[in-house]
Deep mutational scan, measured.
Amino acid sequence: MDTYKLILNGKTLKGETTTEAVDAATAEKVFKHAANEHGVHGHWTYDPETKTFTVTE
């Protein structure tokens, strides 16, 4: 398992979190669910070198 990071750049919610996942696709599902639960919808990017997802509203 690897550690993946999410950076939230929402209009009303900003922050960072991490998750352990077997691959980037699994981490993305976890992060998108969490972002949706917090009402953050926007443009997603992924940097494979740093294993970091970013969502920007």
Rank of each mutant, 00 (worst) to 15 (best):
M1Y: 12
M1F: 11
M1K: 13
M1R: 10
D2I: 13
D2M: 12
D2W: 12
D2G: 09
D2E: 14
D2C: 12
T3P: 04
T3E: 08
T3R: 08
T3N: 05
T3W: 09
Y4H: 02
Y4P: 01
Y4C: 02
Y4S: 01
Y4A: 01
Y4R: 00
Y4E: 01
Y4W: 04
Y4L: 01
Y4G: 01
K5Q: 05
K5C: 06
K5R: 13
K5S: 06
K5D: 02
K5I: 11
K5L: 07
K5P: 02
K5V: 10
L6S: 01
L6Y: 02
L6V: 04
I7E: 04
I7Q: 04
I7D: 03
I7M: 05
I7H: 05
I7P: 01
I7R: 05
I7C: 06
I7G: 01
L8F: 12
L8G: 02
L8H: 03
L8K: 01
L8A: 04
L8I: 15
N9W: 11
N9C: 13
N9R: 09
N9Y: 09
N9S: 08
N9E: 08
N9Q: 09
G10T: 13
G10I: 09
G10L: 15
K11H: 14
K11C: 14
K11A: 14
K11V: 15
K11T: 14
K11P: 11
K11W: 14
T12C: 14
T12A: 10
T12N: 14
T12M: 09
T12P: 04
T12V: 12
L13P: 04
L13S: 09
L13K: 07
L13F: 15
L13G: 08
L13I: 14
L13R: 04
L13E: 09
L13M: 14
K14G: 05
K14V: 11
K14H: 11
K14S: 11
K14M: 10
K14I: 12
K14N: 09
K14T: 12
G15F: 15
G15V: 15
G15E: 11
G15Q: 14
G15C: 15
G15K: 15
G15N: 09
E16K: 05
E16N: 05
E16G: 05
E16Q: 08
E16I: 07
E16P: 04
E16F: 11
T17D: 07
T17G: 07
T17E: 12
T17A: 14
T18W: 14
T18P: 02
T18A: 07
T18Q: 10
T18Y: 15
T18N: 06
T19C: 12
T19L: 13
T19H: 08
T19K: 04
T19G: 03
T19M: 11
T19V: 14
T19Q: 05
E20T: 12
E20S: 11
E20C: 12
E20H: 10
E20V: 14
A21S: 06
A21H: 02
A21N: 03
A21V: 04
V22A: 13
V22Y: 13
V22L: 12
V22M: 13
V22R: 12
D23E: 03
D23V: 02
D23G: 03
D23C: 05
A24S: 08
A24T: 06
A24M: 12
A24L: 10
A25T: 09
A25M: 09
A25E: 13
A25D: 10
A25L: 10
A25K: 10
A25P: 08
T26C: 07
T26H: 13
T26Y: 08
T26Q: 12
T26L: 05
T26R: 05
A27E: 00
A27C: 02
A27V: 02
A27N: 00
A27Y: 00
A27H: 00
E28P: 00
E28H: 11
E28G: 06
E28L: 15
E28W: 15
E28Q: 09
E28S: 06
E28R: 06
K29I: 13
K29G: 09
K29V: 11
K29F: 09
K29E: 13
V30G: 04
V30W: 11
V30S: 07
V30Q: 09
V30P: 01
V30H: 11
V30C: 07
F31C: 02
F31V: 01
F31Q: 00
F31M: 02
K32G: 04
K32L: 11
K32M: 11
K32C: 07
K32D: 03
K32R: 15
K32I: 11
H33E: 14
H33V: 14
H33C: 11
A34F: 15
A34V: 15
A34P: 02
A34W: 15
A34K: 13
A34I: 15
A34R: 10
A35F: 05
A35V: 10
A35G: 03
A35W: 06
A35Q: 03
N36K: 14
N36F: 13
N36S: 14
N36R: 13
N36G: 10
N36T: 11
N36D: 12
N36A: 15
E37P: 03
E37N: 10
E37K: 12
E37C: 11
E37S: 13
E37H: 11
E37V: 13
E37Q: 13
E37A: 13
E37L: 13
H38V: 15
H38I: 14
H38K: 13
H38Y: 15
G39M: 06
G39S: 06
G39K: 07
G39T: 04
G39E: 05
G39W: 05
V40R: 02
V40A: 04
V40N: 03
V40W: 07
V40Y: 06
V40C: 04
H41F: 14
H41K: 10
H41T: 11
H41I: 13
H41A: 10
H41D: 12
H41M: 10
H41C: 11
H41E: 12
H41S: 11
G42P: 01
G42S: 02
G42I: 02
G42M: 03
G42V: 02
G42Y: 04
G42C: 02
H43I: 14
H43R: 11
H43Y: 14
H43Q: 13
H43C: 11
H43E: 15
H43D: 13
H43P: 05
W44Q: 00
W44L: 03
W44P: 00
W44M: 04
W44C: 02
W44Y: 02
T45K: 08
T45F: 10
T45Q: 10
T45N: 09
T45C: 07
T45D: 12
Y46E: 00
Y46F: 07
Y46V: 01
Y46N: 00
Y46K: 00
D47L: 04
D47T: 06
D47V: 05
D47Q: 06
D47I: 05
D47C: 10
D47K: 04
P48S: 10
P48W: 07
P48A: 13
P48I: 08
P48R: 07
E49C: 09
E49T: 13
E49S: 13
E49I: 11
E49A: 13
E49K: 11
E49L: 12
E49V: 11
E49F: 12
T50S: 10
T50Q: 06
T50F: 06
T50Y: 06
T50A: 06
T50M: 06
T50D: 04
K51C: 04
K51V: 02
K51A: 03
K51Q: 06
K51M: 07
T52G: 01
T52N: 02
T52H: 03
T52W: 02
T52S: 04
T52V: 07
T52L: 04
F53M: 01
F53D: 00
F53A: 00
F53H: 01
F53W: 05
T54Q: 06
T54E: 07
T54D: 03
T54Y: 07
T54R: 05
T54H: 06
T54L: 05
T54V: 08
V55R: 00
V55L: 09
V55D: 00
V55K: 01
V55S: 01
V55F: 05
V55P: 01
V55H: 02
T56Y: 08
T56P: 01
T56M: 06
T56R: 05
T56D: 08
E57T: 05
E57L: 05
E57V: 06
E57R: 03
E57M: 05
E57D: 07
